[in-house]
Design a protein around this nucleic acid. Structure first.
Lengths: 189, 189
DNA sequence: TCCAATCTGTACTGATAAGTACAATCAGAA
DNA sequence: TTCTGATTGTACTTATCAGTACAGATTGGA
């Protein structure tokens, strides 16, 4: 029997896409098996805990990705306008202008049996805290408030873009958000 | 066999709560049967189309409720600050400060087989269009943009509040939103 | 070459899913 | 009262679910 994947890590992107597309409950093992090309034997070999463990692994990978590609760069730059612009560009690409569901947000709305509470809250806390630090460094008043606002608009933008099938909406929201933050910066000077 | 409900309308609030709590896929018929106190016989008698018809009926009732309690009052008042304040109060009560999931938003993120696209988009279009009209009447610039922004913040607020189990977040967002809109109004004069 | 650990497919279990069939029961009209 | 149509519970079918068991295949090292 030929080997298909070397490590379970290789399956995580596919798993993530399935969970995003069908939701946690809608993602059945047969669907997962079809999408990954792995039989049940392999799936349970890599994830003895079944679907819950798959979702946990996916969430952890997502958090790591955000840590590397979103959070860390935010604090690298000294110019907040530049940092925010860069972040929103990455965010737009990652969520495909809101057409791609945020799995963490989706699990926030519907977490079966509260399995993923801690991972979900850690993700959003991390994001908000990093943004807060950025805004504090830049001398903004109400830094944490603004940080909260940014994440709210991203999540809300995804919901509305999905609802209206209108990626332009997401792009428009992100653009306006950027302008508002930059305008606030100028007022600080 | 005793009669339990007079009309299928009576079951809609319970059905709505189930779908909100467990999501469309997570709401099994046995769960629905338990929550409503109706056996399968009754459920299929009222909703021959099964779960999909239940969800459709719920969505239609939600839309009607918003039409009456949110959209119509928005255009009744001439003062936009007053109208927005009233709306946000109703919204906060309805979504229980973000602790209660927006079923339409939840279906926007995960619509199994795109069953509810038209209902979902109609709901959000109605909301945005009404707000746009309000802002236009009040002489705001970028009325439709502001309308979009309001709905985005409500949906995003729900996601984050659910994620962080922090209803204060939702209340804070709504309060800031209100202030921002009122500030914009004053700038128009 | 051969062996042990890793990987994989198939076949199975028991539970639960949606949906159907139907007889029993009810309420209200005649 | 009696009848009719609306309502309800139970039992059933069929499909799919998650999860287990296990034998066969593969790989890389000894």
């Amino acid at each position: 029997m030929p080997r298909i994947v070397a490590e379970r890590t290789d399956t995580l992107p596919t798993l993530a896409e399935i969970f995003r597309e069908y939701g946690y409950n809608g993602a059945s093992l047969s669907l997962i098996s079809k999408a990954t090309g792995l039989g049940k034997g392999s799936l349970y070999h890599f994830f003895p805990g079944g679907k819950a463990e798959m979702a946990t692994a996916v969430l952890e990978e997502i958090e790591a990705w955000f840590q590397t590609n979103i959070f860390t760069p935010l604090l690298d730059t000294s110019d907040p306008a530049c940092a925010i612009t860069e972040m929103l560009d990455t965010v737009m690409a990652y969520f495909q202008s809101g057409q791609r569901v945020c799995l963490v947000g989706s699990l926030a709305l519907n977490d079966p049996e509260d399995r993923f509470v801690s991972l979900v809250s850690r993700y959003f806390e991390g994001w908000i805290n990093t943004l807060t630090q950025l805004f504090e460094n830049a001398g903004y008043v109400d830094a944490s408030d603004l940080a909260e606002q940014v994440v709210v608009e991203i999540q809300g933008g995804i919901v509305l873009t999905r609802a209206l099938h209108n990626p332009a909406l997401f792009q428009r929201r992100m653009e306006k958000l950027k302008q508002r933050i930059i305008a606030l910066a100028e007022r600080q000077d």
